[in-house]
Computed example of a mutant assay.
Amino acid sequence: KGALIGMLLFGPRRRAMVMPYETIERAAATLREKGHVARGYLGAGLHPIRNGDTHGAMVMSLDDNGPAKAAGLHLGDIIVSWNGEAVHGPRDLIRRLGPDSAGASVTLGVARGGERRDVVLTIGEKPLN
C-alpha cells in the first residue's frame, strides 16, 4: 500500500534498529503539543549493587531539588524494588522512566542500614538542560 511502517536507525555500536511508525507518530504528536518529549526523572545518581541477596541500584548522589531527595532517599540507600517488582540495577530503573512516568507516584523498596523500607516518590520531569 506504500504506507510507512518504521524508520531505520543506527544505535550503539552501529547496530541497526527499527523504530515503529506508531512510536514516531506518538513522539511527533507530543512534540507538536509540548515542544519536547518528557522523560521521567528521579534526581539521583545510581550505581549497580550486588551484595549477597541484595541486588539493586545504590544512590550515589542526589539532586537538591529532585524527587528522590524530596521523598527522603539518602546517599547509600539501595533501591531494590519498584511497586513491588525487583530492581536489578540502574538500567532497570531507567527503563521504567519513560515519557508516561512523569507525575506518577511509585513505591520504591529501599534497603538502608540493613533494614528494608518503602519510600513513596512522585516521579519528576527531566529538566531540558
Score class of each variant (00 low, 15 high):
78 I>W: 07
113 G>M: 15
90 P>N: 02
104 A>E: 14
4 L>G: 10
14 R>Y: 03
118 D>F: 06
77 D>E: 06
127 P>Q: 03
118 D>N: 15
48 P>R: 15
39 R>K: 03
77 D>Y: 10
103 G>K: 01
49 I>A: 10
51 N>K: 11
121 L>K: 11
115 E>K: 14
2 G>L: 15
113 G>H: 08
124 G>R: 12
18 V>K: 07
94 I>N: 12
51 N>S: 09
4 L>F: 14
49 I>R: 03
118 D>V: 12
103 G>L: 02
27 A>F: 03
27 A>Y: 04
26 R>Y: 03
101 S>Y: 02
7 M>H: 00
46 L>S: 08
71 A>F: 08
45 G>Q: 08
33 E>V: 02
36 H>V: 12
109 G>M: 02
75 L>F: 04
62 L>V: 09
57 A>Q: 13
85 E>P: 04
128 L>W: 02
67 P>N: 11
120 V>Y: 05
110 V>K: 12
11 G>I: 06
50 R>Q: 11
35 G>S: 02
56 G>D: 08
38 A>L: 00
63 D>C: 13
51 N>H: 03
24 I>Q: 02
82 W>P: 09
24 I>K: 12
114 G>E: 12
13 R>N: 15
52 G>L: 05
100 D>C: 07
128 L>A: 13
62 L>C: 07
124 G>E: 12
100 D>R: 11
